[in-house]
């Protein structure tokens, strides 16, 4: 469970986040959407303690993120930023293994090794385990990074625009993977998405942000409505049910 109350962020005199209060229940996939500059990534960075909290209070599963030791938090939540620009020549298995760092401090136990092997299998990376990550394609790399994040074994997983640089196939694969993580392992997934249709297809809940505030939050079906979407994104779009799925027609 993520509990955010009265969080504001000011950078260089301009208000990025304005008194955000939000509670996300345990479990399920929550999509964070909104136009550029709405403050989605800033909010995610604050939750993940990548940025110091200025005002307000955030707790993840009851741990206040500003006072809990960082190593402790790393066992509670994992974060994947958009394009972390990992340039090291590490093998895929080594990179995924570093996901166990919060638990083992780097010296992998037999239990850690088992979890790493399982994770590689789950993310279809076993065949690539001994490849250097700088020799992988963009999609494989992203998969390896998500696997490392998953391998951290935390109840909460935060992802910042993980679909960037992925083609349609890999984007869909990744979203299904997140769905599976939430369904089979009961994890709480919070993901920043640009494509509203990915949110509509895979998320249980949607939080829409605009101008540093929460514009709307609720079940996917209650947010994917033409009037709400127009209010958030600033232009009219059509919502249809195609083959039983809510689909937003915003391209034309």
């Amino acid at each position: 469970m993520i509990d955010i109350s009265d969080v504001s962020l000011t950078l260089g005199g301009s208000v990025i986040l304005d008194q955000i209060s939000l509670t996300l229940p345990k479990g399920g996939v929550t999509a964070l959407v909104g136009p550029n500059g709405a403050g989605k990534s800033s909010l995610l960075s604050l939750i993940a303690r990548l940025r110091p909290l200025q005002t307000g209070r955030i707790t993840v599963d009851g741990h206040p993120i500003d006072t809990t030791p960082t190593r402790q938090l790393a066992k509670v939540m994992a974060i994947l930023r958009q394009d972390p620009g990992v340039a090291s020549r590490l093998r895929v298995a080594e990179l995924v293994g570093f996901g166990r760092f919060p638990h083992s401090g780097g010296r992998l136990t037999a239990e850690d090794r088992r979890i790493v092997a399982e994770t590689l299998e789950r993310f279809d990376l076993t065949g690539l385990a001994s490849r250097f990550i700088d020799t992988l394609s963009g999609g494989q790399r992203q998969r390896a990074l998500v696997a490392m994040t998953f391998c951290q074994g935390t109840g909460t997983v935060l992802l910042d625009e993980p679909l960037n640089n992925l083609d349609m196939f890999h984007a869909r694969e990744l979203m299904r993977m997140l769905r599976k993580i939430a369904d089979e392992h009961g994890k709480t997934v919070l993901v920043v998405l640009h494509d509203i249709n990915h949110a509509a297809a895979h998320a249980d809940r949607i939080v829409a942000m605009k101008d540093g505030r929460i514009a709307a939050a609720g079940d996917t079906a209650s947010i994917i409505r033409p009037d709400l979407l127009e209010m958030v994104f600033g232009f009219p779009m059509q919502v249809e049910t195609i083959a039983g799925r809510l689909t937003v027609l915003h391209h034309a």
Partner: peptide, 21 residues
């Protein structure tokens, strides 16, 4: 401290995410 230094080379965000000081 080799593991910590390796994580350091992965960048600040990854490092903090993994609980590195």
């Amino acid at each position: 401290t080799a593991d910590r230094l390796t994580i350091l080379s992965l960048g600040r965000d990854v490092g903090i995410g993994l609980g590195l000081n």
